[in-house]
Simulated scan of single mutants.
Amino acid sequence: METIVVYLENMFANLPRTSEMEHLKQELLTGMEDKYLELKREGKSENEAIGIVISEFGNIEELTAELGIEPVHMEESVPVLTEEEAYAYTTAKKSAGLWTGLGVLLCAFGVGFLIFMSTLAENYGMSAAHSSIETGTVIGLIGMFLLVAVAVGMFIHSGMKLERFSYLEEGFQLPYSLKRNLQRNQANFALTYRVALITGVSLCILAPALIFAAAYLNDSYAPYGVSSFMVMAGVGVFLFVYYGNTQGAYTTLLEEHHLTAEKKEEVRAVKAVEAVIWPLAIAIFLFTGFVMHRWDINWVVFPIAGILSGSFGNLYHIMKDRNPS
């Protein structure tokens, strides 16, 4: 039966990918399965049954001609992805997720370290006037910049690992057997991904409680709570990035690969907005913390940025529908 399914997939490879075509393919598959089982019951061998089924159902040209369906001719040749390339991509994507996640975690640690050192010097260095406060702030800044510098190196390394797979953005095809293997791998990974996602969300939701707990003990302890918040939230984001990258690899390989020009434009627009939202969110967080001393509330900028980033794709799609070009 696997041979028949693969043959049917190849028959429909160059036909429009519409719901009507999917329905037609399923009807043909049902008919071919029934015929195959009937032949097997009659005592036909595996090869004989498959050969008869394909000979009776395999003329897709006549069927599409009767229905008035034209094959899809690609303007550019779309490469067929090999098993080695597909698994190399998933490995690179997972590795890139690890480095990117660690980079985000180091950035969170850096901001948390700066807040911690500044607060520590302010609370326990009053006897030495401003010198201890300035020293604590300088140490915090040095530590933060060192961690951010290492994080930036990790981001660059992560991007370089995926550069050689940039051709996938232009579209590709998967052999049916490889597609089935990837689907099975994705199904096996689903539980791990859900657990990581739930854990990350729980950490991000519980992290602000550290700020309130520290402020409850003493108002001057609130910045320590913010430092703890950054660390816990950083761990949550690490889980999102690392396991999300692995899930994203399967999504990229198994989704529709022939992106339209409009879809490519949407992807570029979303990436451009994300490149602005997150640095702006960090700048607002640091400004409201060090200048306005609102560590107790300024953490909300990150969930707000996440909501804005996640919803922009839908907003862009809605606006394009209202103003078609």
Rank of each mutant, 00 (worst) to 15 (best):
residue 224 Y to S: 09
residue 216 Y to C: 02
residue 173 Q to R: 15
residue 6 V to S: 12
residue 170 E to L: 05
residue 141 L to T: 06
residue 194 R to D: 10
residue 31 G to M: 05
residue 34 D to H: 12
residue 6 V to N: 13
residue 221 Y to W: 15
residue 261 A to R: 10
residue 16 P to G: 09
residue 166 S to P: 01
residue 151 A to T: 04
residue 73 H to C: 01
residue 128 A to K: 09
residue 191 L to N: 13
residue 299 W to E: 03
residue 141 L to P: 00
residue 148 V to N: 10
residue 139 I to D: 02
residue 27 E to I: 05
residue 273 V to T: 06
residue 239 L to Q: 04
residue 207 A to K: 01
residue 187 A to R: 09
residue 83 E to K: 15
residue 97 G to L: 03
residue 158 S to N: 03
residue 19 S to I: 06
residue 59 N to Y: 04
residue 227 S to L: 06
residue 228 S to E: 08
residue 295 W to Q: 02
residue 182 L to G: 01
residue 233 A to H: 10
residue 237 V to S: 03
residue 200 G to D: 08
residue 300 V to G: 06
residue 182 L to P: 00
residue 42 E to I: 00
residue 288 T to Q: 11
residue 149 A to E: 13
residue 61 E to C: 00
residue 268 R to M: 11
residue 182 L to H: 03
residue 241 V to M: 05
residue 12 F to Y: 15
residue 35 K to Q: 14
residue 40 K to E: 11
residue 177 S to Q: 14
residue 71 P to M: 03
residue 177 S to E: 15
residue 74 M to A: 15
residue 113 F to D: 03
residue 37 L to K: 14
residue 273 V to Y: 08
residue 21 M to E: 07
residue 90 T to W: 03
residue 39 L to I: 10
residue 200 G to V: 02
residue 67 L to F: 07
residue 27 E to Q: 12
residue 171 G to K: 08
residue 84 E to T: 10
residue 117 M to L: 11
residue 27 E to N: 13
residue 167 Y to R: 13
residue 298 N to H: 08
residue 215 A to R: 15
residue 245 N to T: 04
residue 178 L to E: 08
residue 81 L to C: 10
residue 95 S to R: 14
residue 166 S to G: 10
residue 19 S to Y: 10
residue 261 A to Y: 10
residue 66 E to S: 11
residue 36 Y to N: 03
residue 280 L to F: 13
residue 269 A to M: 07
residue 272 A to H: 06
residue 120 L to Y: 13
residue 56 E to S: 14
residue 136 G to A: 08
residue 259 L to N: 13
residue 151 A to I: 01
residue 236 G to L: 07
residue 30 T to L: 13
residue 108 A to D: 00
residue 103 G to T: 04
residue 168 L to T: 09
residue 141 L to W: 12
residue 103 G to P: 01
residue 169 E to V: 02
residue 37 L to E: 15
residue 9 E to G: 06
residue 177 S to F: 02
residue 141 L to Q: 11
residue 64 T to Y: 02
residue 138 V to P: 00
residue 270 V to C: 03
residue 42 E to V: 00
residue 53 V to E: 08
residue 93 K to H: 06
residue 131 S to R: 12
residue 319 M to V: 11
residue 43 G to S: 04
residue 233 A to V: 05
residue 169 E to I: 02
residue 283 A to Y: 09
residue 91 T to K: 15
residue 168 L to F: 07
